[in-house]
Amino acid sequence: MNTAEKPVLQVSNLTVRYGEGCPDCQSSLEKNRCTKCGTVWASNDVSIEVYPGEVLGIVGESGSGKSTLMQSLYFDLEPTSGRAVLSGYKNGQVNIWEASSAEKRGIKNKIMGMVYQNPVRGLRMDYSAASNIAEKIIAAGSRNAGEMTERAMELLEAVEILTSRMSEAPKNFSGGMQQRVQISKALANNPSILLLDEVTTGLDLSVQARVLDLIRKIKTKYGISILLVSHDLAVIRMLADRTVVMLDGKIIESGLTDQILEDPQHAYTQQLVHSLL
């Protein structure tokens, strides 16, 4: 990680709210809901930066706004306000949320890679593993089937899936294998940032360990920046260089992961860390 460099991703003041809002919202929030008008502030003025080669962990309980951030970044939901720039898109000068839908598709296919908690969201379960990877490559403009197959084999090998199974559909794979196919698909076009949304949730412990180990290897091999969302501090401890703690749609604490885990400042973070220990 090098914070002297230009961030790969910079999010400023992301707000996602459900409801019209009222002038008293910010002073009348009960958790993330306004007691006067009922508006829910799923993400409330969130700002983060991810630097080249860095893993930034986002931790928080359910409903804290972690997935809202990820879904906004991958254009799965439209933010109410805010700005996000990617160094790989128009030299970091243009807000990606103001891009045209074709440009957004280009960003998703070439600059970002996403791995969802539920593989059904990220994979075409009835298509072969190779086609799942090729889909990204095709979307990026390639029309060479041989090159796609070569790339699919290379990536499947990287995620430790036998290339002899590349013509099989992910619906026939185990949960851990499906996650690994998702990771290989996300890497298809050498994105500059990988978004990992609770990728180990729901997997048994041994499979979790394998997926985490794989992510660590991928980080080393490809030098890719990773935004990692998890409610599991053990996952964050293992992978994240820096960590941001979210609660009720807001960032309440951020810093180096070791610092957050060893010396938490906010009461909620202290509670979170102590519940782990």
């Binding site: 598709r105 190779a130 086609s131 889909e135 095709i138 979307a139 029309r143 796609m148 197959t149």
Partner: peptide
Amino acid sequence: DYAPIWLQLYESII
């Protein structure tokens, strides 16, 4: 955006 059509062809090849 014709990537899904191309994907059909590719899936057949695989």
